[in-house]
Design a protein around this nucleic acid. Structure first.
Lengths: 246, 246
DNA sequence: ATCGATCTCGCACACTGTTCGACTGCCGGT
DNA sequence: ACCGGCAGTCGAACAGTGTGCGAGATCGAT
């Protein structure tokens, strides 16, 4: 078991030290919760052990009693927010509506906690909440008669769409937030640069036209973008099911 | 170095040490190139201005003449690798095959440079290569009769799939790389933990079964996973085009 | 010979994650 | 009542980070 820890470096297989009888002032849960608060507020760069410690009224190094490493803390935080993703029961919704709700839940979670996106590619997510989510998505798609490889491929496709879309959306949102300006101001300031780009790329006008509408309703347009892709993708999955059973 | 010049003052030393030929010893392009090399080798955490400087035979702060900030350097590096993405001309391939090639190119670029994934959500990509890629994908989809919002939605859908899939794949690849073991060894070491998880989640066996095959052919399975999703997605886009024109 | 512009870089600052050993207060056992 | 040990906290210290600043080097042009 401990050699396993040497091979796969992940929090979930290491024993937690936090359980005891008295009343310690800190707890792993509390640390994770406030870490998530700070990550939501300031992004991954805004979380330091010292800041987190003093936010909790403790010395920075006290945290290391509950958490082996900052990386572990991040892994724990990621799994914690995976717990926010609700995956419906196919008996309630059918596979297609359920899959749509699942993908939307995942997207919304990622937009609530944009720092998660930067963590997803770093290591596999084997935490209990991520596992639960994976299983429930499998249950969902089994109801749609997916099986074998297609089952895991379809599940992966839904997550990929949520992750990819949220990544793109979050890139835009982050630049708006960092600029400190409103969306309108930012796109306006970007205008001259885009003019210059458009001069070199004649076909770019169409894409730009679509984007310029974003000045007024960015959230709506991004939601539409996600929904459009999701519908095409579910159509494709449905069509595949149809030809398979034929 | 300069004390050596003081001691042995010969013509033979001076020109060799004096890199001065009217050209500066550093250049933005060179900095970006070696930064990408280091990022590919050690990931985002492995790049520091000091290490990059000494790799280039320069002081760390010399880099700041060419690059305002480390963040800027990362932005430049990201756009540089966007230049590796080849987007076909629809006259050569038709929109569907072209879109498939585009998505595959994007995926392969992201797998070659996994650190890019962690950068994508941080800020929008407005560099020249990213712009060129965006325009060429628009040209591609216009050939398929996409227009207006659907045009940008479809383009975004292709990129989302590549980004999302590459994120998931890269998570797995990163853990293999960090463990230092082979894929077989790693999945084997993971087995007991997954057994424990499967006990709590009855439906998980199916997903696990699919993953266990990964022990032998992980690259192939991940490629299949991407290709399956891409085909479903293109089917969905094709179907949408059909109903639109009807 | 002198002046700017271009370029390089050592030093310093504030900050990071993490280790180590010292410290407290509480527990059960004697 | 004592005491050993343990759960928990923390200050100091180390090696490393990004970057501002200003001093210097080297150049072509005057």
């Amino acid at each position: 078991m401990s050699d396993m820890a040497d091979f796969i470096d992940t929090v979930w297989i290491r024993p937690s030290r936090g359980k005891r009888t008295g009343q310690p002032t800190l707890s792993r849960e509390q640390i994770i919760r406030t870490a998530i608060e700070m990550l939501d507020a300031d992004g991954a760069a805004g979380l330091s052990m010292r800041r987190l410690g003093s936010r909790l009224g403790s010395g920075a190094t006290s945290l290391y009693w509950y958490v082996a490493t900052k990386d572990d803390l991040l892994e724990l935080a990621v799994d914690e927010v995976f717990g926010e993703v609700y995956v419906p029961d196919p008996d309630d919704t059918g596979w297609r509506v359920g899959a749509s709700i699942f993908a939307n839940q995942m997207r919304q979670m990622l937009l609530r906690h944009p720092w998660v996106i930067g963590q997803l590619g770093v290591r596999p997510n084997l935490g209990p909440n991520a596992m639960r989510m994976g299983e429930r998505s499998v249950v969902l798609l089994e109801a749609g008669e997916f099986d074998g490889m297609a089952l895991s491929h379809a599940s992966s496709l839904l997550m990929s769409h949520a992750i990819g879309s949220a990544t793109i959306e979050s890139a835009f949102a982050a630049s708006v937030k960092r600029s400190g300006a409103t969306v309108a101001e930012m796109t306006e300031r970007l205008e001259p640069y885009l003019d210059q780009v458009a001069a070199d790329h004649p076909h770019y006008d169409k894409w730009r036209h679509a984007n310029s509408v974003m000045t007024q309703q960015p959230e709506q347009i991004m939601a539409d973008n996600f929904a459009f892709g999701l519908e095409r993708l579910l159509d494709g999955l449905g069509a595949w099911l149809a030809t398979k059973s034929a």
